[in-house]
Computed example of a mutant assay.
Amino acid sequence: MSMHRKTITLTEQQDEWVKTQIESGHFGNDSEYIRDLIRRDQQAKERLTTLRQALTDGELSGKPKALDMSSIKAAARKLIKTAN
């Protein structure tokens, strides 16, 4: 994987925060911390996209039906028996 050098500007407070994260042993250097933040942001965006798609799919799946708790419980009991 090729690496690209970036220059960023932080406030003093932000710089202190990054240094604290490194000193606490969570990260080896500034770059590791920034890369971790980017990975977490990417994962959060992917989860949000997945959730939005699930909501859209649900809305398009048709008219809602009444919830039948007895059927749900029966199905759960059947799954438990099968698992044991």
Rank of each mutant, 00 (worst) to 15 (best):
M1W: 04
S2M: 04
S2W: 01
M3H: 08
M3C: 05
H4F: 09
H4P: 02
T7H: 11
I8R: 12
T9K: 13
T9L: 07
L10S: 04
T11C: 04
Q13W: 01
Q14K: 09
Q14F: 06
W17H: 15
V18S: 02
K19V: 10
T20S: 13
E23P: 01
S24F: 01
S24W: 00
S24G: 15
G25H: 09
H26N: 14
F27Y: 15
F27N: 04
N29A: 04
N29Y: 06
E32P: 06
R35I: 03
D36Q: 09
I38L: 06
R39L: 10
R39H: 10
D41I: 02
Q43I: 03
K45Q: 14
E46Q: 08
E46T: 03
E46W: 00
R47A: 11
T49D: 11
L51R: 08
R52S: 12
Q53T: 08
D57Y: 07
D57I: 02
G58F: 12
L60V: 04
G62H: 07
P64C: 06
A66H: 09
A66E: 10
L67Q: 06
M69W: 13
S70E: 15
S70W: 06
S71L: 11
K73Q: 10
K73P: 01
A74G: 09
A76M: 13
I80C: 01
I80F: 05
K81F: 00
K81T: 09
T82C: 01
T82G: 00
T82L: 08
A83K: 01
N84P: 11
